[in-house]
């Protein structure tokens, strides 16, 4: 399956106030992208299969595509609005997610592969 064609945004349990933890009904949770946009260093925690790796892959795909001026994956794809399931009848178009860092060059390190490589005696 082509990732850019099927990906949908990942939500975190953070809110804009940043003072309270845990979800509140009156304030929507921040997306993983918005958190990544805010933070210089970010650790994304979640249960297996919750979409952490897929989110990282999607960000890497969009930033790489933006660097190559691709039509199928770019910054527009990256900031695509989150689906608003609760308010499908809303007249206003949903806002794109924030991204203020342009087409950065992504460096993706898969830790299990990194560890396996670091133990390889060929590195001598």
């Amino acid at each position: 399956m082509d990732l850019a064609a099927v990906y949908t945004g990942l939500l975190t349990d953070r809110r804009r106030s940043e003072k309270e933890h845990g979800l509140r009904q009156d304030e929507p949770p921040l997306s993983a992208l918005e958190m990544l946009n805010r933070e210089r260093l970010l650790a994304l925690l979640g249960a297996p299969g919750s979409g952490k790796s897929t989110f990282v892959n999607f960000v890497a795909l969009c930033l790489s595509g933006a660097g190559l001026n691709r039509q199928d994956a770019n910054l527009t794809t990256l900031v695509a609005p989150l689906p608003n399931e609760e308010n499908d009848d809303a007249k206003e178009a949903p806002s794109p997610q924030p991204w203020n860092h342009g087409a950065l060059v992504p460096i993706r390190v898969v830790l299990r592969e990194f560890v396996a490589g670091a133990l390889d005696p060929c590195w001598d």
Partner: peptide
């Protein structure tokens, strides 16, 4: 090099493995 790297990166992440 940048172009080759970005293309390589896209090939690494573009598909969802089943």
């Amino acid at each position: 090099l940048r172009s080759a790297y970005l293309n390589w990166m896209i090939e690494q992440v573009r598909a969802i493995p089943l």
